[in-house]
């Protein structure tokens, strides 16, 4: 791989520099690239750092000077305290967990099961049905909103289960909308498992449930982890589904709660900045701790 990178960087790299002047010349040669990348780094970091710095500044300072005026920086945690307590972001944080965790585990389980059937069991119309799954992959969620919401409303009115008042509606909706992509992704991984292994287990008399549990799942941990992380962050970051399917304000997730801050406090940046970073904590943690799975999951998820 190192060779290939070098191949793109000109013949100068192929031999090590011998003299100081040679080294300096080489750096000058690459100066436009370093400059360009420095600019890229600046443009991609400055906006987020600006908001991060702002989230630790007292309200009065934010109104009188820009965050880039680092000489006037004074540190405070008041914004975070105020947003977490008075603005309800702490309970919204817990709500987000309440929404995200079942909305990750449930589709993960159902997708693994269906993907196993599509890859290692035999049933009629298997390929046709899998083609249907791929077709459904691209359907915009908007197409399902009105009928699903109407269905939930009628169910709530006739049975009083309170799907829309609680988390039932959003769990079911996230799970269902995740299925085509999850089945597609996991099925493509499952079919790469060694056939001999599964055949051997079958000859030893293992049932399908046992093959699924003791052979397929343990061998697929990386793929399942990548998909699980993707789905978790997808739900964590979602706003649209929460707008439609979480109707009780006490159950709102962070994304929806921040919207409230934006509406009520148009220029109260001390609250908004802190709120946005509370929303970002978990994805950033996942990003830095599980970067490999995370990038894999996102790249695979690009077809969604």
């Amino acid at each position: 791989m190192a060779q290939q990178i070098d191949a793109l960087s000109g013949p100068a790299v192929e031999t090590p520099a011998r003299t100081l002047s040679e080294r300096i010349l080489r750096m000058l040669n690459k100066a436009p690239i370093h400059l360009g990348l420095a600019l890229v780094g600046l443009v991609w970091l400055a906006p987020s750092i600006g908001l991060l710095v702002t989230s630790f500044r007292p309200r009065s300072d934010i109104q009188s000077s820009g965050w880039w005026d680092l000489g006037r920086f004074r540190f405070t945690l008041e914004n975070y305290e105020s947003v977490l307590q008075a603005q309800g972001m702490l309970s919204a944080f817990i709500n987000t967990l309440w929404i995200s965790i079942p909305s990750t585990i449930l589709p993960l389980l159902l997708c693994c099961m269906a993907a196993y059937a599509f890859s290692w069991l035999r049933f009629p119309f298997r390929d046709t049905l899998f083609l249907l799954v791929i077709t459904l992959l691209m359907i915009p969620v908007q197409v399902a909103f009105i009928p699903v919401l109407t269905l939930f409303r009628i169910l709530d009115e006739t049975t009083g289960v309170g799907l829309l008042r609680g988390y039932g509606a959003i769990w079911l909706a996230h799970t269902a909308f995740a299925l085509p992509f999850g089945i597609f992704l996991l099925r493509n991984f499952f079919i790469t498992l060694p056939r001999d292994l599964i055949e051997a287990a079958r000859i030893d008399g293992a049932s399908d449930i046992n093959i699924f549990r003791t052979v397929v799942l343990p061998l697929s941990v990386p793929a399942i982890a990548a998909y699980g992380i993707f789905q978790f962050l997808w739900v964590w970051n979602d706003l649209l589904m929460a707008l439609v399917f979480v109707q009780d304000g006490r159950n709102w997730p962070l994304t929806r709660q921040i919207l409230g801050l934006l509406g009520t406090y148009g220029s109260e940046w001390h609250l908004l900045a802190a709120g946005a970073f509370i929303l970002m904590t978990v994805p950033l943690l996942v990003f830095f701790s599980l970067q490999r799975y995370f990038v894999q999951g996102l790249l695979a998820g690009s077809v969604k």
């Binding site: 906006p47 994805p283 950033l284």
Partner: peptide, 18 residues
């Protein structure tokens, strides 16, 4: 450059509105 992919569009929106 990849980092913005991790965070919610809602957070991107707040960052840039600022």
């Amino acid at each position: 450059v990849f980092l913005p992919m991790a965070i919610a569009a809602t957070a991107l929106a707040v960052i840039w509105t600022f």
